[in-house]
């Protein structure tokens, strides 16, 4: 029993370790040049060599990502509650929202740069734009899928809209919200990095661009690894918050 638990706890590490081992061995075995695919050790070496650059770049990206994400959280929950609590609102806004969501966010970056210039603002706004739609859609779904019988009970008690939203709608939407946060935080990263690649003077995206244009491929991979690790970190934080606050949704057991 204990062995099984240990194995379960170790399995993600083993999988990740295996992935990097295969990568390393493949690079060695097929003698792949560093300029095409550097091995993990080469990438880590580059990472250590350039750590001050990578650190400041990742801090910049983390900053734009988190700011964009929190704006997305606030706007997404507010609009989601609005859209989800009324059929009419849902019908009226849905096509427009889907349209907005379908526009590739990278296409918005030049516009944002035109408005706000090069710097953190376009990255923050791109992160916000990519992350907010899943939050909105999930919160709206969570609120709109209230059981009709329960709605009847509440209405017959003379419940006002605001009270229903506070007592039932929002708590009910919480698991949906957290499911979306895990997606949204990753999307916010994507948004930030893309914006930095198109128009910025800092951040991981900018580092990726400059490193690849000067053919420092190991540095590119080091930066990519950092983005991946940061993504996992954010996901884990979102997951922890979720487990604490919506234990009832997983019936007290663990999730995923």
């Amino acid at each position: 029993m204990n062995r099984r638990k240990l194995r379960q706890a170790m399995s993600p590490w083993i999988t990740a370790g295996g992935f990097f081992a295969v990568w390393e061995v493949a690079c060695l075995a097929f003698d792949i040049p560093q300029s095409i695919l550097p091995s993990p050790t080469d990438s880590v070496k580059a990472g250590i060599e350039f750590w001050p650059v990578i650190l400041s770049a990742s801090m910049q990206t983390l900053y734009t990502t988190l700011v964009g994400f929190f704006i997305a959280l606030v706007v997404g929950v507010a609009l989601g509650a609005l859209v989800g609590s009324s059929q009419a609102m849902y019908r009226a806004t849905n096509p427009l929202l889907i349209g907005f969501n379908s526009v590739p966010k990278v296409a918005m970056v030049p516009v944002l740069v035109m408005w706000f210039g090069i710097g953190s603002v376009p990255a923050i706004l791109t992160a916000f734009l990519t992350a907010f739609f899943p939050i909105l859609a999930n919160v709206a779904t969570g609120i709109a899928t209230l059981e009709p019988e329960l709605a009847d009970v509440l209405r017959s008690l003379g419940a006002k809209r605001g009270v229903i939203l506070r007592k039932v709608g929002l708590p009910r939407a919480l698991p949906y919200l957290f499911a979306s946060l895990k997606v949204a935080i990753s999307l916010a990263f994507v948004g930030s990095v893309i914006a930095e690649m198109v128009a910025s003077d800092g951040g991981i995206g900018y580092l990726l661009l400059t490193a690849s244009s000067s053919f420092r491929v190991p540095l590119v991979f080091a930066a990519l690894l950092v983005v991946g690790v940061l993504g996992i970190l954010m996901y884990v934080i979102a997951d922890l918050i979720e487990r604490r606050s919506t234990r009832w949704a997983t019936r007290g057991g663990g999730s995923l």
Partner: peptide
């Protein structure tokens, strides 16, 4: 009406 109580086939309790 506010003077009614209702119960259905589905208990519709709030899980939290």
């Amino acid at each position: 009406l506010k003077i009614v109580g209702m119960a259905f086939q589905n208990p519709t309790l709030l899980p939290w």
